[in-house]
Amino acid sequence: MTVHETLKNRLPELISEIYEINEILKAESRALQNCEDSIFDLIDQAHFQSATWSISRLEDIFNVVGSVDDSLETRRKRIADKQGTNIVANKSVLVNLVNRYLVNDSANIELLHDLYHFIISYNLDDLQLFTEITTMIEKTKPAHLGYTMRSGIVENITFNEQVVANNRRYRKVREINWGYSLLLENNEVIL
Protein backbone atom coordinates (compact mmCIF):
# COMPACT_ATOMS: atom_id res chain seq x y z
CA MET A 1 0.00 0.00 0.00
CA THR A 2 1.41 3.40 -0.97
CA VAL A 3 1.67 6.40 1.34
CA HIS A 4 -1.07 8.16 -0.68
CA GLU A 5 -3.47 5.24 -0.20
CA THR A 6 -2.64 5.07 3.51
CA LEU A 7 -3.40 8.77 3.98
CA LYS A 8 -6.58 8.50 1.90
CA ASN A 9 -7.83 5.52 3.95
CA ARG A 10 -7.47 7.49 7.18
CA LEU A 11 -10.01 10.05 6.01
CA PRO A 12 -13.72 9.50 5.66
CA GLU A 13 -14.68 8.57 2.09
CA LEU A 14 -16.80 11.67 1.70
CA ILE A 15 -13.75 13.93 2.29
CA SER A 16 -11.13 11.81 0.49
CA GLU A 17 -13.15 11.95 -2.76
CA ILE A 18 -12.91 15.76 -2.97
CA TYR A 19 -10.50 16.68 -5.78
CA GLU A 20 -8.58 19.34 -3.83
CA ILE A 21 -8.18 17.09 -0.78
CA ASN A 22 -6.96 14.26 -3.01
CA GLU A 23 -4.35 16.56 -4.62
CA ILE A 24 -3.17 17.75 -1.19
CA LEU A 25 -2.84 14.09 -0.10
CA LYS A 26 -0.77 13.33 -3.23
CA ALA A 27 1.61 16.22 -2.50
CA GLU A 28 1.88 15.27 1.17
CA SER A 29 2.46 11.62 0.32
CA ARG A 30 5.37 12.55 -1.99
CA ALA A 31 6.93 14.65 0.77
CA LEU A 32 6.42 11.91 3.36
CA GLN A 33 7.84 9.30 0.98
CA ASN A 34 10.94 11.46 0.40
CA CYS A 35 11.42 11.84 4.18
CA GLU A 36 10.96 8.11 4.72
CA ASP A 37 13.46 7.29 1.96
CA SER A 38 16.00 9.70 3.46
CA ILE A 39 15.59 8.18 6.92
CA PHE A 40 16.04 4.63 5.62
CA ASP A 41 19.07 5.74 3.59
CA LEU A 42 20.66 7.22 6.73
CA ILE A 43 19.99 4.00 8.61
CA ASP A 44 21.60 2.02 5.76
CA GLN A 45 24.67 4.26 5.85
CA ALA A 46 25.19 3.59 9.57
CA HIS A 47 25.83 -0.13 8.91
CA PHE A 48 28.85 -1.23 6.90
CA GLN A 49 26.91 -4.07 5.23
CA SER A 50 24.65 -1.60 3.42
CA ALA A 51 26.74 1.61 3.40
CA THR A 52 27.54 3.22 0.06
CA TRP A 53 28.33 6.93 0.21
CA SER A 54 29.37 6.81 3.90
CA ILE A 55 31.85 3.94 3.59
CA SER A 56 34.87 6.25 3.96
CA ARG A 57 33.38 7.64 7.19
CA LEU A 58 32.99 4.10 8.55
CA GLU A 59 36.58 3.30 7.52
CA ASP A 60 37.71 6.29 9.59
CA ILE A 61 35.62 5.18 12.57
CA PHE A 62 37.00 1.63 12.48
CA ASN A 63 40.53 2.82 11.61
CA VAL A 64 40.64 0.75 8.42
CA VAL A 65 43.31 1.57 5.86
CA GLY A 66 42.52 0.87 2.25
CA SER A 67 42.30 2.42 -1.17
CA VAL A 68 39.33 4.42 -2.41
CA ASP A 69 39.88 2.66 -5.75
CA ASP A 70 38.89 -0.69 -4.22
CA SER A 71 35.41 -2.02 -4.81
CA LEU A 72 32.67 -1.25 -2.31
CA GLU A 73 32.43 -4.93 -1.39
CA THR A 74 36.16 -5.12 -0.61
CA ARG A 75 35.94 -2.04 1.59
CA ARG A 76 32.97 -3.56 3.44
CA LYS A 77 34.92 -6.80 3.99
CA ARG A 78 37.81 -4.85 5.53
CA ILE A 79 35.45 -3.23 8.03
CA ALA A 80 33.82 -6.58 8.80
CA ASP A 81 37.22 -8.13 9.37
CA LYS A 82 38.24 -5.26 11.64
CA GLN A 83 35.11 -5.81 13.70
CA GLY A 84 35.71 -9.55 13.81
CA THR A 85 39.29 -9.44 15.12
CA ASN A 86 38.11 -9.70 18.73
CA ILE A 87 36.72 -13.19 18.18
CA VAL A 88 38.49 -16.36 19.24
CA ALA A 89 40.09 -17.92 16.19
CA ASN A 90 39.40 -21.56 15.45
CA LYS A 91 39.43 -23.65 12.29
CA SER A 92 35.93 -22.71 11.10
CA VAL A 93 36.47 -18.99 11.78
CA LEU A 94 39.66 -19.00 9.72
CA VAL A 95 38.01 -20.95 6.89
CA ASN A 96 35.15 -18.41 6.78
CA LEU A 97 37.66 -15.56 6.85
CA VAL A 98 39.57 -16.92 3.85
CA ASN A 99 36.36 -17.74 1.98
CA ARG A 100 35.28 -14.07 2.21
CA TYR A 101 38.05 -13.19 -0.22
CA LEU A 102 37.59 -16.12 -2.60
CA VAL A 103 35.20 -16.28 -5.55
CA ASN A 104 33.89 -19.67 -4.41
CA ASP A 105 34.13 -21.15 -0.93
CA SER A 106 37.06 -23.49 -1.61
CA ALA A 107 39.19 -22.88 1.50
CA ASN A 108 40.25 -25.78 3.67
CA ILE A 109 42.56 -25.85 6.69
CA GLU A 110 44.79 -28.74 7.69
CA LEU A 111 46.05 -28.59 11.28
CA LEU A 112 49.56 -29.78 12.14
CA HIS A 113 49.30 -29.89 15.94
CA ASP A 114 52.81 -31.16 16.64
CA LEU A 115 54.38 -28.39 14.58
CA TYR A 116 52.08 -25.59 15.83
CA HIS A 117 51.29 -24.87 12.22
CA PHE A 118 48.33 -24.99 9.86
CA ILE A 119 48.05 -25.15 6.06
CA ILE A 120 45.39 -23.17 4.22
CA SER A 121 44.46 -24.74 0.90
CA TYR A 122 42.27 -23.10 -1.72
CA ASN A 123 41.50 -23.34 -5.41
CA LEU A 124 43.80 -20.99 -7.36
CA ASP A 125 40.96 -20.00 -9.71
CA ASP A 126 39.00 -18.59 -6.73
CA LEU A 127 41.77 -16.28 -5.49
CA GLN A 128 41.04 -12.53 -5.60
CA LEU A 129 42.82 -10.58 -2.87
CA PHE A 130 45.85 -12.47 -1.53
CA THR A 131 47.21 -9.59 0.56
CA GLU A 132 43.82 -9.10 2.25
CA ILE A 133 43.70 -12.79 3.16
CA THR A 134 47.17 -12.83 4.68
CA THR A 135 46.61 -9.55 6.55
CA MET A 136 43.40 -10.78 8.18
CA ILE A 137 44.90 -14.18 9.02
CA GLU A 138 47.83 -12.44 10.73
CA LYS A 139 45.39 -10.35 12.79
CA THR A 140 43.11 -13.26 13.67
CA LYS A 141 45.30 -16.34 14.18
CA PRO A 142 46.88 -17.14 17.54
CA ALA A 143 50.37 -15.64 17.76
CA HIS A 144 52.12 -18.96 18.46
CA LEU A 145 50.88 -20.62 15.27
CA GLY A 146 52.56 -20.48 11.89
CA TYR A 147 50.74 -21.02 8.64
CA THR A 148 51.32 -21.82 4.99
CA MET A 149 49.14 -20.82 2.05
CA ARG A 150 48.77 -23.55 -0.57
CA SER A 151 46.86 -23.08 -3.80
CA GLY A 152 45.81 -25.79 -6.18
CA ILE A 153 43.85 -26.25 -9.34
CA VAL A 154 40.99 -28.69 -9.31
CA GLU A 155 40.78 -30.42 -12.65
CA ASN A 156 40.02 -33.92 -13.81
CA ILE A 157 42.75 -35.36 -15.99
CA THR A 158 41.99 -38.27 -18.28
CA PHE A 159 44.81 -40.35 -19.72
CA ASN A 160 44.21 -42.25 -22.96
CA GLU A 161 47.27 -44.43 -22.43
CA GLN A 162 49.22 -45.79 -19.50
CA VAL A 163 51.51 -43.15 -17.99
CA VAL A 164 54.55 -43.90 -15.85
CA ALA A 165 55.83 -41.09 -13.63
CA ASN A 166 59.35 -41.45 -12.19
CA ASN A 167 60.81 -39.43 -9.37
CA ARG A 168 64.54 -40.13 -9.23
CA ARG A 169 66.98 -38.72 -6.73
CA TYR A 170 70.69 -39.12 -7.25
CA ARG A 171 73.48 -38.99 -4.68
CA LYS A 172 75.28 -35.72 -4.15
CA VAL A 173 78.96 -35.64 -5.06
CA ARG A 174 80.07 -35.85 -1.42
CA GLU A 175 77.81 -38.91 -0.88
CA ILE A 176 79.36 -40.97 -3.68
CA ASN A 177 81.38 -43.91 -2.43
CA TRP A 178 83.03 -46.75 -4.31
CA GLY A 179 80.58 -49.57 -4.84
CA TYR A 180 77.37 -47.53 -4.35
CA SER A 181 75.11 -46.69 -7.26
CA LEU A 182 74.63 -43.08 -8.25
CA LEU A 183 70.86 -43.49 -7.94
CA LEU A 184 69.72 -42.91 -4.35
CA GLU A 185 65.94 -43.24 -4.78
CA ASN A 186 63.61 -44.23 -7.57
CA ASN A 187 59.87 -43.80 -7.03
CA GLU A 188 57.67 -44.96 -9.85
CA VAL A 189 53.94 -44.38 -10.20
CA ILE A 190 51.83 -45.92 -12.95
CA LEU A 191 48.71 -43.96 -13.86
Rank of each mutant, 00 (worst) to 15 (best):
V93M: 05
L94E: 08
L97F: 06
L97M: 12
V98P: 00
N99W: 07
N104P: 05
D105A: 15
S106F: 02
S106P: 02
A107S: 03
A107T: 00
N108Q: 08
I109K: 05
I109Q: 06
E110T: 08
L112I: 12
H113Q: 15
H113E: 15
D114A: 14
Y116C: 12
Y116M: 13
H117D: 08
F118S: 01
F118I: 05
I120T: 00
S121T: 08
S121V: 06
Y122R: 02
N123C: 07
L124A: 14
L127T: 04
L127I: 04
L127C: 04
Q128P: 10
Q128I: 15
Q128N: 13
Q128R: 12
L129Y: 13
F130T: 15
F130H: 14
E132M: 09
E132F: 06
I133E: 05
I133T: 08
T134P: 11
T135Q: 14
T135R: 14
I137G: 10
P142K: 10
Y147K: 00
Y147G: 00
T148V: 02
M149Q: 01
S151G: 12
G152Y: 09
G152H: 12
I153C: 01
V154G: 09
E155I: 05
I157P: 05
T158K: 09
F159M: 10
F159G: 11
N160W: 00
Q162L: 09
Q162V: 12
Q162G: 07
Q162K: 05
V163A: 03
V164E: 02
N166W: 07
N166T: 09
R168C: 12
R169T: 07
E175G: 06
I176D: 04
N177G: 14
N177H: 13
G179A: 01
S181F: 00
S181T: 01
